[in-house]
Every structure is written in C-alpha cells, then in structure tokens.
Amino acid sequence: MPSPSMREMGQRIATIRRGRRMTQAELARAAFVSLATVKAIERGARSPSDDTLDSLAAALSVDPSDIVTGSTRTDSRVHAAIPAISAAISAYDIPTDTTPRPLPELDSAVGVLVQWRLGAQYARIAERAPHLLWDALAALHHTAGADRLHAAQLLAVAARSADAVAYKFGHQDLSARLVELMRWAAQQTEDRVAQATAAYVRTETFFAARAHAQGLTALEQAIDASPSPVDRAAAAARGALHMRAAVIAARARDADAAALHLGEARRLGHSLPEDAYSGTQFGPDTVRTHEVSVAVSLGQEHLQQALDVADEWTPPADMPAERQSGFWIELARAQVWAGRPDDAFESLKVARFIAPQHTREHPWAREAAATVRRLKRADAESLTSFAEWIGAV
C-alpha cells in the first residue's frame, strides 16, 4: 500500500499539473522522464528520486518544497548552501582574476533569481546564489562606465535574493552581511531608487534585533533621501518605504506614525498599477496586505481592522507567493486572538499551499499553529499533522 507521504506527494504533483493545464504526457516530456514514471508517482506507487523531483518541479515552475511539503529536504539544501554564499561575499571589495560573465547572460540569470524570490523558491536560490554573487562581483570589478553601473545593479539584486534565503532560514549574521553588500552595491549604482530599495531591505536587521524605533528612524531618513515620486519607479520606491515604515512603527507601538505612513502608502499606491516594481512590488493590493500587517503588529486592540480587511478582500492569485502567504499568516494570528481557531487553521493551510517554505519558517505561523492545536487538542488528525510539519510540537 502506498505510504501517506508518497500518496500526498503524488496528489500534489497532479494538482499543480492540472493547475498548469498540462497532461501527464506533457509533464513527462518537460521533465525528461517517462510517462510511466509520472503516472506511478501521481498515484503514490513510487517516490521520486531527488533528481526526478527537481526535474518535475522545474517543469511545473515550482520549488521542490511546493511538492514535498512535509519534509526537511529544502531545509537541508538551503543550510548546505549557506557556507558557499558566505564565502562568495567574504572579500566583496577585493578584485579577483575571475573573468567576468557577459552582462546580458548575467542579467538573465539574476532575473530568474528574482522570480524565484517572488515565488518563495528558496532551495533554487540557495544553490544558484553563490555562483551569481561571484559572477556579479567579478563583473563589477572588471568593468567601467555604464557597464559597471549595470553590474552594480545586478549585484544588489543578487544580494537581495540571497538575503531572502538567509533571513527566512534564521542565518541572521549572514543576512546582515548580505544587506550591507546590497547597500554598498546600491551606492555604486548612483541610482537613488536602488538605494531606496536597499534601505527597504535593511529594515530586516531592525526587525531581527527588535530595534523598531531605530528602524523607523532609519526608514524616515531613507524616505527623505528618496527621489521625488515624479515617475512610476520613484513613486513605487517611496511607497514601499512608507509601507515598511508603517509596519515597523506599528511594531514600535507608535500608532500615529503607523497611520501617517500607511496613509502616504495608500496615496501613492492608488496612483500606480499593482505591478509597479522597484525592487519590491508595490500597488493598491500590496498596500492592503500591509494594512493587515500594521493592524496585527499594533496588537490585539486593533485586530478588528485586520479582520475587516480580510472580510472584504483577499490577495489576488498573481501577487508574489511570499506576500500572499504573509497575508494569510498574519490573518491567522488575528483570528487566533479573536477566538476563531478554526478560521486561523484554514488561513494557515492556505498560506502553506501558496508558499510552503515561507510558511514553515515563519515564527508567527508556528506560534499560531501551536495555539490552535492547544485550543483544539482533541480535534482532527490534520491539525496535529500540520503542527508537526511546522515545528509547533
């Protein structure tokens, strides 16, 4: 009899495949495996090897963790790659004899890294990031003029993608080093929008240290230094800074500052399409997700605001997976506080479906799952299974 994990994995592959409107034969061709292999895996009669799982995930345009939601496979791959990421940036300001990769080729590779970050595909980022960081540094040190400015942009973007992995998986020291590398590269670009994006990401270090008041000060200085929102890129960059400032002000329990910055973010968001992108996606829907984040961060007395947003709006399917799952995780926290554990569990399951590894590594998701399980200890086996998966028991 197929094991539950094999059966669940097969069902998940089939669900994702159907969502992509692919036949089993089309998936087999795209993954370079036999049709018999796909059929056996989907019905739970066979467990894919690591290479086969990677091939299927690539063919479906998902991270392997989206398929193997109950394993530590992605965790181990990420943690194994951390030393290589650290080594790649250890002497970032010292030129080497490495021959730089052609900029168009590097540009394309870094663009793929960005898409993986938006899709919370951390295993892929972790394994590819060391080489791309080396290549971006070589390009920066061995080019001049416009090419050097371009290389600096690519280095900043690559560092941000690598930081997404380090930060989410608890490597805070490495995350701080990658943020500093991103800020250094942004200064080399001579682009104030790139510098604003670096300031946005730098907030992670303040979140990690719980230095919320200091983080708010840093963000307000970055807002003052950011370019006037006279075009789409500049408006998106400034709006993102205001969103981040609203959240960290809420964490500092400064409701007035949170309201001020959220209001500015709304104003800028309404002037832009949702897909405005200047290092982070910005637009009206993104601002809505931050309304929930601000309300939850301000504490239980503001939770009704989060519940009200969720009653009338949910993130669209084309929003980046990490941001969608973040919305559901924070909503779950509000639902726990409101005495709605069943709703909280449903929100956590949605978050896991959208971005498994982001959900699994999120401390608030783990906390909410533990609370729900405690409140409903005698409830369905699926709740215990979820709590075990996320590390809440």
Rank of each mutant, 00 (worst) to 15 (best):
A198H: 02
P229T: 06
A185Y: 03
A213S: 13
A255Y: 02
R266N: 03
A209S: 07
L260F: 10
P316L: 10
L268I: 05
P227L: 04
Q188S: 09
A234C: 07
T286I: 13
S228T: 14
A250L: 05
R244M: 11
Q305L: 15
A198E: 04
A225Q: 12
A249F: 00
P316A: 14
A199L: 09
T314R: 11
E190M: 07
P315I: 06
L303E: 13
W313A: 04
D308W: 04
A234S: 14
E274D: 15
R192C: 02
L303D: 14
E291N: 03
V230K: 11
R267L: 10
A240F: 03
I248T: 09
G279S: 12
A218E: 10
P227I: 05
P273A: 12
S228E: 15
R253V: 11
H302M: 14
D256H: 10
H290A: 03
E274Q: 13
P229H: 06
H302A: 15
A306N: 04
D308P: 02
A213E: 12
D318F: 10
I223D: 08
R210S: 09
A310E: 02
R210N: 07
V294E: 06
R244W: 04
G239P: 01
Q188T: 05
R210F: 04
R244H: 07
L268D: 04
P284S: 09
Q300C: 12
D191F: 00
Q214W: 01
V247E: 05
T217R: 14
R202K: 11
A222N: 06
S228R: 13
L298F: 09
A186Y: 01
D191L: 02
D318T: 15
P273E: 11
H302R: 15
R244D: 00
A246W: 00
P273L: 08
A213Y: 05
Q304A: 15
A222M: 08
A186T: 07
A310T: 09
Q300V: 15
Q187I: 14
G239L: 01
L298D: 07
A252L: 04
A185K: 06
A213C: 08
Q300Y: 12
Q281R: 15
G279C: 11
R202D: 13
M243D: 12
A186E: 05
A246P: 02
P320V: 12
Q188W: 08
Q195V: 11
W313N: 03
L260S: 08
A225D: 13
Q188R: 13
